[in-house]
Amino acid sequence: MFRDIRQRLLASAVTIVLASFVSFVVLRALPGDPARLIAGPLAGPETLAATRSSLGLDRPFFAQYGQFLWNFVRGDWGYSFSVGDEVREALTSRLTATLELALYAFVLAVVGALVCASVASFRPGFRRGLVRLFALVGLGSPPFWVGLVLIVVFSSYLGWWPGPSGRLSPQLYPPEPVTGFYTVDFALHGDLIGVSDSAAHLVLPVVSLALLPWAFLTRLLTANMADTAGQPYILVVRSKGVPAWRTHVRHVLANSLLPTVSSCGLILATLITGSVLVETVFNWPGVGAMLTEGISAQDFALVQSFILLSAILYVVGNLVGDAVNRMIDARLRTPGAAR
């Protein structure tokens, strides 16, 4: 068991280092000259040279990479010239915005999937067809386009929710940061107007972001529940006189959760990717727009640090997902079950 854990941790570390290396190489392969972009069109050769050396671009490749890893571990993530701020500052202030969006979308997707899958797999009929249709539509929708349509319909035309005006109506001040989540921070300060305003701004982006993972989870869970429902032990439970709906939730759902739980890491990755697109549409001040701009400007420090960070997140998410799986399912605990 310990050997297994050690191996897994080692593999995770390898994954993280490789991912950071790939990002390092790819970023440097991008066409362009960041020094020219920073120093501007009027800069002379001395300024260009000084800019290059302050970026560390005049040093050998592996020295640059080693320096980057070492600095990252020490907590010095460098300076982002495209934002004009320290990378740590830029990422942390913006990451909370992305996380608030992503977490609400995550909750919405998971809860929505649990409810819809339970309803759809309960018995065939109209409801099943409806859920299935929506899931298909959800799976086929590019998030940036859904965002656009939602804005046109619910903001422009119906005026129910604010359109793409960021996290807050412009006349409100952001709350004193505690968690960085506006809804939570406003609630902590007891500002109800703030809570409802920031929540209203969340509705459309959360829905556009949650649609794809919701559809994915709903389909996965429904398929698994339909499988489980056909198992003999469910018949046994039913024959003991447990009501149908109760059986469905307590036994069928509970026994079908495993693949859903283990796919949560993947879902989180989808949400981060999706946020890149959704944030642009809703003018959400998260990391998404900053990163696309960063790639475009070859802002090495910014993009590298983020990719390293998200690789760590992904790996940790996977480890946690596995651990949860093992806790739920005794079969996986046998040593050597996983190669």
């Binding site: 609400y104 909750v107 919405l108 809860v111 903001s155 005026g159 129910w160 929710w161 604010p162 109506s169 006349q171 409100l172 809804t183 107007i193 809570v195 409802s196 305003d197 929540a199 209203a200 969340l202 509705v203």
Partner: peptide, 27 residues
């Protein structure tokens, strides 16, 4: 968590108009 989200979304829905998110708002 589900209840909390539902609550927040409901709050968002019913106060959006009062806030006047589509008009010149809270003065």
């Amino acid at each position: 968590a589900a209840a909390a989200l539902a609550g927040v979304l409901a709050l968002a829905g019913c106060t959006a108009d009062k806030l006047g998110v589509t008009g010149p708002a809270v003065s």
